[in-house]
Design a protein around this nucleic acid. Structure first.
Lengths: 192, 192
DNA sequence: ACCTGAACACCGTTCAAGT
DNA sequence: ACCTGAACACCGTTCAAGT
């Protein structure tokens, strides 16, 4: 009779996977390791998750939602000026990518096919940028402009997190230069 | 006596791995699959390569060198004007990333730790951009400016290849907008 | 010098059986 | 309804033995 009481939960499983991801990279997120961390046996995981790809997609979704919150909060703190908000957004995104590089890599890179965040979660993560950019370039150009800003921030942070900037120099300053150059170009209506 | 004749070679192994990578993603680049494709048994691979990570790093290096050649050729064809060269570079990079997305993802994303290209290969791939940017902003600011341009192109192409731009709109035009905005900002000496 | 089969440890996943 | 042990297929890697 009495059905077996749940010894864990999907949120707990996702949290364990995120810890393992940051601690040891994607390879460390094995079904065996996740199961051990939440205190069950590997086969039981399949009652909560379809397969490993499904679990990784859930992790990516959770990361995207966290990033959206974090970036939105930074914009809020920056006050009403759109340019200042964009600078704050960009800085928050870079901090996130440097603090949790393996989670950040999971967001877009497509290195792990099938492990993309939900479209809804991606939209949620992109929204603060989209809204801020809209305040700068207007409704009509907001989508392409937001894509440009996002691509720069994502590309820069990914490369930095992966250690691609090995030739010395001030990396933080290069990032600020990029944001300023983009802001100047967008405010000057380049390409219109 | 007569030592066993080599039935394959490191270049052939790397080529097989690159084919498998584009055909089926990183997971498809198993030692078993690579061995089968070059006509030997898996254990023999270890006479040519330290382990799977070493093989992936060799693949990443080969990809970086190819990309450098391709991008340099595009700049050459574009003629002497630095702005035109930069536009051509950027377009070539995006083509490359869209044509071989999984190879491109391997280049920086750090999603596969230990599988980064050789520093020398990375420098080689970055050189055409660095030289073109130097002709625009001068020696002193060439390093940060090149980082900004590379980050944008890499980020945009990665996201596009991963299918991140799902909200419609003209993606190619957004890319051109980004390049133009960066060019305008760099030519106007923003941040100096 | 390079290739091979046998072997080991490890992982993802399925399934029948428990409560 | 969720958990378990047993089992299977598959992979990375090592090693002793072949030529």
């Amino acid at each position: 009779m009495s059905p077996a009481r749940a010894r864990t939960s999907l949120p707990a499983i996702i949290a364990a996977a995120r810890e393992l991801l940051e601690e040891g990279g994607l390879d460390a997120v094995s079904m065996v390791a996740v199961a051990r961390r939440v205190g069950i046996r590997p086969p039981s995981l399949y009652k909560h998750v379809r397969d490993r790809g499904d679990l990784l997609a859930a992790v990516a979704t959770a990361v995207a939602l966290d990033l959206g919150d974090l970036v939105a909060a930074a914009a809020e703190r920056a006050g009403p000026d759109p340019s200042e908000r964009l600078r704050a957004l960009a800085a928050a995104y870079r901090s996130f990518a440097l603090a949790t590089p393996r989670s950040a890599a999971l967001l877009f890179a497509g290195a792990t096919p099938g492990a993309e965040p939900t479209p809804a979660a991606q939209a949620e993560a992109a929204r603060p940028v989209l809204e801020t950019v809209r305040a700068i370039v207007g409704e009509e150009r907001s989508l392409p402009a937001a894509r440009v800003v996002t691509a720069f921030a994502y590309g820069f942070a990914s490369m930095e997190a992966a250690g691609a900037f090995r030739f010395g120099g001030d990396v933080a300053e290069a990032y600020r230069l990029g944001v300023d150059v983009l802001l100047a170009g967008l405010e000057a209506d380049v390409g219109r």
